[in-house]
Write a protein that binds this DNA or RNA. Structure first.
Length: 422
RNA sequence: GGAGAGAUGGCCGAGAGGUCGAAGGCGCUCGCCUGCUAAGCGAGUGUGUGGCGAAAGUUGCACCCAGGGUUCAAAUCCCUGUCUCUCCGCCA
């Protein structure tokens, strides 16, 4: 969330900045509620002050055996009044809170202006898409023919948009997870985390999925629990309500988790294959940083994710999301897109973002500078390193042979027991 | 699932209606002392939010797990919830 005071004092600038993200924010309403809230707060505090002073006086009088009856009677009324005011104050606070919690982050100055995905900026392309002397098949065709993917049976067990891997397919998925985790932990300095896959409402709110995007989540009926849509949620919240020491920063965590998304409103998009599933695997990278270093950390996070694609020798491109295409909590986001021959396009396989202190304020994650008084909010970052299901799809498509078989990328063969081909 | 105990500052831990934002210790910061280190001595050291101030500050309010209640007054009494620990049952 944004700082309430900052929004109040820079109303038009905030309005202006948020308007570049599309979906006009209603700051008029905020202004009204916030003014009312401040009035009520002032009044309540004044009365509470009076009560504190008089109560102390009553205590003194009683000690000296004097009669304090008239003061007690007066305070009885004051307390009733305070209670009334507190009630309307808390209603008002809730209204302000609802508004502020639904405001997206302010875009960083380096983020290109734009209304939607068409205005994202290409940063670079790495690797050259392979020329096929036959027609490149889609990964779901390859996978089904090789009997390593079975969407029909998956639908029978669970429904549409669920994966079912068999044999070498299951092994390849597992190999990818291990491959990614090993690189990030041994070469990039991340600590491996295995978090809960179900989290509570506060945690979901801390990273920004709630209150605005409940429809995108799977909720457990009868419980205030949600399936995680990404490891970002449990891993960032590891340090919720904590004060970290400056020398602990930066903190690097990596975690494999399955991810669960309702994909509400995506009917008809990517209905086939592994691209858009209700459940998929992902290896996530999460960082906690001091504010002054966070944009350097974003660059290295991006490189860490790119390393996986380079090792797998998959062609990809990196883009900077424009203001209109960024996610709710992000101040700046790079997407990595992998080449999918069957579609002839680059598709998102990783999204690397700096959230600055937006999540830290919600989750209350602070740090203390050595030798300095007080605390500051940390900056949080995360990125996929990578989406495993989409990596699986990219390998099938990019490494397919004319006979329908698929070569295993060199770097992955040790993880496949030496297997060279499926 | 049953029975009991607990939750207090960065950490440990006292406090059992008013003198408590909270003893004491640890840690940390600054200073003194010491040939270095260690020890010792002295002072300071929570968070949030508002007012005043250029600032150092100063001042109001809130916060002792969370939410309600009793009371002129709640860390302290009552109710509900969450979490932790111990024992019993069940279980991978």
């Amino acid at each position: 969330m944004l700082e309430i005071k900052f929004v109040r004092q820079n109303l038009s600038e905030v309005q202006q900045s948020l308007s570049t993200r599309g979906g006009a924010a209603n700051l008029e309403n905020f202004k009204e509620c916030e003014e009312k809230r401040r009035e009520l707060l002032f009044e309540v505090e004044e009365l509470r002050h009076r009560r504190n002073v008089v109560s102390e006086e009553i205590a003194k009088m009683k000690k000296q055996g004097e009669n304090a009856e008239s003061l007690v009677l007066e305070m009885r009324d004051v307390s009733v009044r305070i209670k009334e005011l507190e009630k309307s104050l808390s209603e008002n606070e809730e209204a302000v809170n609802n508004i502020i919690m639904c405001l997206p982050n302010l875009p960083h100055a380096s983020v290109p202006l734009g209304k939607d995905a068409s205005e994202n900026k290409l940063v670079k392309q790495v690797g050259t898409p392979r020329q096929f002397d036959f027609e490149a098949k889609a990964h779901w065709t390859l996978g089904e023919n090789l009997k390593i993917l079975d969407f029909e049976r998956a639908a029978k067990i669970a429904g549409a948009r669920f994966p079912l891997y068999f044999g070498a397919g299951a092994k390849l998925e597992r190999a990818l997870i291990n491959f990614m985790l090993d690189i990030h932990t041994t070469e990039h300095g991340y600590k491996e985390i295995l978090p809960p896959f179900i989290v509570n409402r506060k945690t979901m709110t801390g990273t920004g999925q709630l209150p605005k995007f409940e429809a995108d989540l799977f909720k457990l009926e009868g419980w205030d629990y949600f399936l995680i849509p990404t490891a970002e949620v449990p891993v960032t919240n590891i340090h919720q309500e904590e004060v970290l020491e400056e020398e602990m920063l930066p903190i690097y965590y990596t975690a494999y988790t399955p991810c669960f998304r309702s994909e509400a409103g995506s009917y008809g998009k990517d209905t086939r294959g592994l691209i858009r599933q209700h459940q998929f695997n992902k290896v996530e990278l999460v960082k906690f940083s001091t504010p002054e270093r966070s944009y350097d950390e974003l660059e290295s996070l991006l490189e860490n994710a790119e390393t996986i694609l380079k090792r797998l020798e998959l062609p990809y491109q990196v883009i900077t999301l424009c203001t209109g295409d960024m996610g709710f909590s992000a101040a700046k986001t790079y997407d990595i897109e992998v080449w999918l021959p069957s579609q002839g396009v680059y598709r998102e396989i990783s999204s690397c973002s700096n959230f600055e202190n937006f999540q830290a304020r919600r989750a209350n994650i602070r740090f203390r500078r050595k030798g300095k008084k007080g605390t500051e909010l940390v900056h949080t970052l995360n990125g996929s390193g990578l989406a495993v299901g989409r990596t699986f799809a990219a390998i099938l498509e990019n490494y397919q042979q004319a006979d329908g078989s698929v070569l295993i990328p060199q770097a992955l063969r040790p993880y496949m027991g030496g297997m060279e081909k499926i």
